[in-house]
Computed example of a mutant assay.
Amino acid sequence: MANTVFIKPRHRVQVKPGAVVTLGQAAQIAAPDGGLIRRLKTIPLYRIQPSDKNIVIIDMMQMIRAVFDVDSSLDVQMIGPSQTIIEVVYEKRKVSTASFVLVWLLLFVGSAMAIMNFHEDVSMQRVHRHLYEMVTGQAVDKPLLLQIPYSLGLGIGMILFFNHWFRKRINEEPSPLEVEMFNYQQSIDQYVILHENKESLRPLDDA
């Protein structure tokens, strides 16, 4: 047990271009000896190359081989995921104010047109007039008593649905959009793990 080392690969790690990925960055390490942990954390696993673009996969076998190169007497126990996704984060270009305003206007106008077209398709104004006449017994062309609360409720409902007011989260529960984005990211990660990991692919004529 004294020579047993437990290694748990992290799911995703962000590094800068040209960085050297160490075992301490790519995985969590547990061992009885604190000095051994510090030594293992500094083991280099991979240097980011320009040809790697933005994704590199480090397999657990690569981690085990790196540990054995340092000390072959260790009993390495791997737990958790079998790969670590290394995401190379490049410096982002600053978005100009003009571009931000243009995109904001496009989204605003597009969203407004979509909502108006939907209400026109379902004849929402006629429905409001009919409901107002049923409740009050009076026929009016613009039942503002229904339309104003409906408009406010539409906006408040969207805020509650997406669980955000600008950057502020209303509660800790994820919104449906965040859940869908999470599922999408999980699918992307699985695809990347299968197609970017060279160790998991073996050509037919490979001995």
Rank of each mutant, 00 (worst) to 15 (best):
L36E: 08
V70H: 10
F161N: 02
V67Q: 06
M60D: 09
K168R: 13
L131W: 09
V140N: 05
G80S: 12
Q138V: 09
L204A: 10
Y191H: 13
D75Y: 10
D205C: 00
T22H: 11
Y184G: 06
V76L: 10
G34I: 05
P50Y: 07
H11Y: 07
D141F: 00
L201W: 07
V127N: 02
V21I: 14
K92T: 09
E91F: 06
A98T: 10
H164E: 08
Q147C: 04
V20T: 15
F6N: 09
K53V: 12
Q186K: 13
S151V: 12
F108P: 02
F161A: 06
G18M: 05
F161M: 07
A66C: 11
Q83P: 01
H119W: 15
F166Q: 07
E91S: 13
T22D: 08
T22M: 08
K8T: 15
K142P: 02
R38C: 00
E172L: 07
F100R: 08
I57A: 04
D75E: 12
L74T: 05
V13R: 08
P81D: 14
V88F: 03
Q14H: 12
P143W: 03
M61S: 10
F100G: 01
H128Y: 13
A114F: 15
S51G: 14
N197A: 14
V70W: 05
Y150F: 14
D75W: 05
L23T: 06
Y46G: 04
Q185P: 01
G137I: 02
W165C: 09
M116K: 10
D59C: 06
I188H: 07
K198R: 13
Q28V: 08
F166A: 08
R10E: 02
D33P: 01
S123W: 04
S99G: 00
H164M: 09
D141K: 12
S96C: 02
P50G: 06
V56Y: 06
D69P: 03
I58D: 03
I37R: 02
L23S: 07
S73W: 04
I193P: 01
L144I: 12
M116D: 13
Q14E: 14
R38I: 00
P143I: 02
L40K: 03
H130G: 05
I79M: 13
V122W: 12
Y184D: 10
Y90C: 01
L131I: 15
L144S: 12
E196Q: 11
K142R: 15
I85Y: 02
R39I: 00
Q28N: 13
A26F: 04
E133K: 00
R93T: 07
I188D: 08
S82D: 14
P81Y: 09
A30P: 00
P143M: 05
R47L: 04
V140T: 09
V76S: 11
A30G: 05
G80N: 09
I58E: 05
L160F: 15
